[in-house]
Amino acid sequence: MTEYKLVVVGAGGVGKSALTIQLIQNHFVDEYDPTIEDSYRKQVVIDGETCLLDILDTAGQEEYSAMRDQYMRTGEGFLCVFAINNTKSFEDIHHYREQIKRVKDSEDVPMVLVGNKCDLPSRTVDTKQAQDLARSYGIPFIETSAKTRQGVDDAFYTLVREIRKHKEKMSKDGKKKKKKSKTKCVIM
């Protein structure tokens, strides 16, 4: 069974824990209790493949930012979460993405942009803004509501699919490099 290491990042209060708990335990946590770091595991079937999701729910508070490099190193894919009623959390996505790329030393890291709290009427981040940002990053965008469960499975499952595509691409690139290195030079 394939294991996928997913990391949920975003500013404090955007609903990272609520999304994760909704996926794992099928219930909505409405009281806000700032996370330092929590880890969850769940076995699911995605596109006919049974897999184990190892999900790291991270601290959004700035005082825990020193811990970010460590979990970013171990993560295979990242859910970059903002709240649709919090423009600052949307603007912060850029910083999370840049930090992930720096730590992973790669421009090509599996990510999904997630606009959470889409059940709320007080939207300050337009869907088109988020779609445009995701398009500019070359990553999928999904709106979710941890409260109603809308888009929750889709967000995590899409990230797994992005990781699969990335692994497939990397193995193809690896095979191309191996083929090239088999060419021999004969000096007579």
Rank of each mutant, 00 (worst) to 15 (best):
A11Q: 06
S136T: 06
Y137W: 08
T50V: 11
C185H: 02
T74A: 10
E37G: 00
F28R: 01
E3S: 04
F78R: 00
V125Y: 09
I46M: 07
R41V: 00
F78A: 04
M170T: 09
D57E: 00
N86R: 06
T127G: 07
K101F: 06
Y157M: 09
D126S: 09
V109K: 05
K178V: 08
H166G: 11
Q99I: 14
V14Y: 14
K177G: 06
E49I: 04
D173E: 09
E162N: 13
K88S: 15
R164L: 14
K175N: 06
E63C: 02
R68H: 06
K101S: 11
M72A: 11
M188Y: 14
K42P: 01
D54W: 00
K42Y: 02
E168R: 04
T87S: 09
Y64D: 05
M170C: 06
K182R: 05
K172E: 05
R68A: 05
Q61K: 01
Q131R: 07
M72E: 07
D119V: 11
E63S: 04
E63K: 02
R164K: 15
E31H: 02
V14C: 08
F28V: 02
E31P: 05
L113F: 10
C118M: 12
I55G: 11
S181G: 05
Y157W: 07
M67S: 03
I21W: 15
I36M: 11
S122E: 12
L6N: 03
R68G: 03
F28H: 05
R102Y: 04
Y32T: 14
E62N: 08
K117F: 14
L133F: 05
D30A: 04
E107R: 11
Q150P: 15
R97W: 14
D173M: 03
V152N: 08
K16T: 14
A146V: 14
E49C: 04
Q131T: 08
I142L: 04
N86W: 00
F78N: 01
V14T: 04
V103L: 14
T124C: 11
R102C: 13
E63L: 00
D108A: 09
K42C: 03
R41P: 00
N26Q: 11
G13E: 02
K184S: 07
T127S: 08
L120D: 14
R102F: 03
T2S: 07
T20P: 02
A130E: 08
K178D: 10
K5L: 01
N26L: 03
P121Y: 10
K177C: 08
I24F: 03
V9I: 11
Y137K: 05
L23K: 14
P121D: 14
N116W: 00
T127M: 06
R73D: 11
T183P: 12
V44G: 07
H95D: 13
L113N: 01
V125D: 11
V7P: 01
K172G: 08
Q99F: 14
P121N: 13
F90K: 15
R97A: 10
T20E: 01
G138I: 01
I187C: 12
T87V: 09
L113Y: 05
K182F: 12
Y96T: 04
K176T: 09
A83N: 15
K128T: 07
V109T: 11
D105I: 12
R102D: 12
T74S: 11
A130I: 13
D105R: 10
D30V: 04
K169F: 15
K104M: 08
K178A: 05
I24K: 05
K172M: 12
T20I: 03
K176L: 12
M67D: 03
E98C: 02
E91I: 06
P110I: 03
Q70T: 12
K42M: 05
T50Q: 14
L23C: 13
Y96R: 08
I139D: 03
I36E: 00
L113R: 06
Q25E: 02
G151W: 10
P110W: 00
E168L: 06
G13M: 02
Y32C: 05
E76H: 15
K147E: 06
I100G: 06
K176D: 13
A134W: 04
D30Y: 04
D30K: 05
D154R: 08
A59W: 06
V112N: 00
S136N: 04
E162G: 08
M72Y: 13
I187Y: 10
Q43I: 06
R97P: 01
K5F: 00
V14K: 15
E3P: 10
M72K: 02
S89C: 15
K5H: 01
I21Y: 15
G12T: 02
L79A: 07
D69K: 04
Y40W: 08
V44A: 06
H27N: 08
S65Q: 04
L159R: 00
Q22M: 04
Q131S: 10
R41H: 00
S122F: 07
A155D: 05
G60S: 15
K101R: 08
V7N: 01
G77I: 15
V9K: 01
E31D: 11
V45H: 07
A59Q: 02
D105C: 09
Q61R: 00
G77W: 00
G151C: 07
K180V: 13
Q61M: 03
P110H: 03
N116F: 03
I36F: 05
T50E: 10
F28L: 02
D57K: 00
A18F: 00
D54K: 00
Y71I: 13
V109E: 01
R161S: 14
L56V: 08
C185A: 12
S65K: 02
G48E: 08
D173Y: 10
A59N: 06
K88M: 12
E49V: 08
N86I: 02
K88A: 13
D33F: 02
E62R: 02
E107N: 09
F78Y: 12
K42A: 02
K182I: 15
I93D: 03
D57W: 00
R68K: 05
D47K: 05
L120H: 13
N116D: 14
T74Q: 13
Q22E: 08
Q129C: 12
D119Y: 12
E76G: 14
V14N: 15
D33M: 01
R73M: 09
K184H: 06
V81I: 14
K172R: 07
I55S: 15
K104N: 15
G10D: 01
D69Y: 03
L113V: 12
D54F: 00
